[in-house]
Design a binder for these strands. Structure first.
Lengths: 210, 210
DNA sequence: TTGTCAATTGTCAGTGGCTGTCACTAGCCT
DNA sequence: AGGCTAGTGACAGCCACTGACAATTGACAA
């Protein structure tokens, strides 16, 4: 790796960390891009050469997490019922996610930023839009697993919608609570998913759609 | 009603209609607030005295619809199972929604704007955030119907999350399709809800939570 | 009517996010 | 060593949005 490229990475990471630190302490709206650039001693223009916008810095870490979740779902054994696959994938991927995140920024910082995301209207909106895109991706994967056409059979999109809905609820509760540990999240998620599990058919194949 | 107040309403409606017309034809990002103000021949500052932001004009009509849905859910007989109440409330409220909308702007225009909302990232994000707020409201109503505490029992938030997830999927499909009629929407919604219905317990009370 | 008061509006100036342009500098490669 | 190019800073400009103040317009009483 070049000196040039190393320098670039260092600048990007510095910008990222400075931004997150400022968001977590001062708040998102209260932080200007100039503040971030100044904290790293680069021009505002340079900031925009590394990130498409202020928002992107806030979602840099979540993006990592999403990637891992998608991979985890893809890695699930094909025999597993869809909802089960989603559940296990999510629960299992968190450990690896945590590792990957820690390499970039302290998890503790990410946690604080996550709370900012949930409590800042503009960021929450962006978060939900990203979640919607993830849903679309997952629906595609589920459909493929089951050998279905996403646009012909409603079920892939529906399970994913149901599943994501529950995840959203737990995310919100978790970020609002005072135990921000991984275990708390896992606990909350299983509890909430268990409220739906018994109510959903275990296997589509034994119950063909009309 | 005063001349003053009548004039105000006229200005607001003119701004609203001009904005929606411009969004529908030119696109949201391509329309500046100055364009909207100019179309009505008022200053940009005046626009911001009627609407908190450009976004608000795009969601003026959807806000109406949300109000009606909430009322429709509130009006459901208490004996009805939660999911059933939500389903009927939504399906039944559309007629009244359509009437109320038509008094403000041509429905056809609203339909076109809705497509713009779904296809403009910034608007889609805002739409999802609003939907999340609606969910919270509905969860409260459901909890009250069932005599539960929203924060103690997960079920209200979960049904609403599941229900809303399905509605979102149908909204997207509907707005992407080429039949923008009410009947098409109703058809799509019932079809999709029927895919979940049999999979969810009919009544919580016969199946107490753990 | 007319004069006074209050609401509505326009103008102006300024902030913050974001983009295009251009010249310059620092690292790369031969 | 020196030309090439990626990365940067400086500057100008667009757009959404806000605050402050002055001008205008409708409301209402004398």
């Amino acid at each position: 790796m070049n000196l040039r490229e190393r320098k670039k990475l260092r600048t990007r990471d510095a910008l990222l960390r400075a931004a997150l630190e400022l968001f977590a302490t001062r708040g998102y709206e209260e932080t200007t891009v100039d503040d971030i650039a100044a904290a790293v001693d680069v021009s505002q223009r340079t900031f925009f050469r590394y990130f498409a916008g202020k928002e992107e810095t806030a979602f840099f870490v979540p993006r990592l997490a999403e990637t891992h979740v998608v991979e985890a779902v893809r890695a699930r054994p094909p025999g597993e019922p869809p909802l089960e696959a989603l559940r296990r994938a999510v629960l299992e991927s968190w450990d690896r996610i945590n590792e990957a995140v820690e390499e970039l920024v302290p998890i503790e910082l990410h946690m604080r930023v996550y709370r900012v995301i949930e409590s800042t209207p503009a960021l929450l909106a962006a978060h939900l839009r990203r979640a919607a895109e993830l849903e679309e991706q997952l629906a595609g994967i589920i459909a493929e697993r089951e050998g279905l056409d996403v646009d012909a059979d409603p079920r892939p999109r529906i399970v994913v919608a149901l599943f994501s809905g529950v995840i959203r609820v737990t995310e919100r509760l978790w970020s609002a609570g005072d135990d921000l540990s991984l275990d708390a999240m896992r606990q909350l998620t299983t509890t909430y998913l268990d409220q739906v599990g018994p109510a959903l058919a275990e296997n589509w194949r034994t119950e063909p759609s009309p």
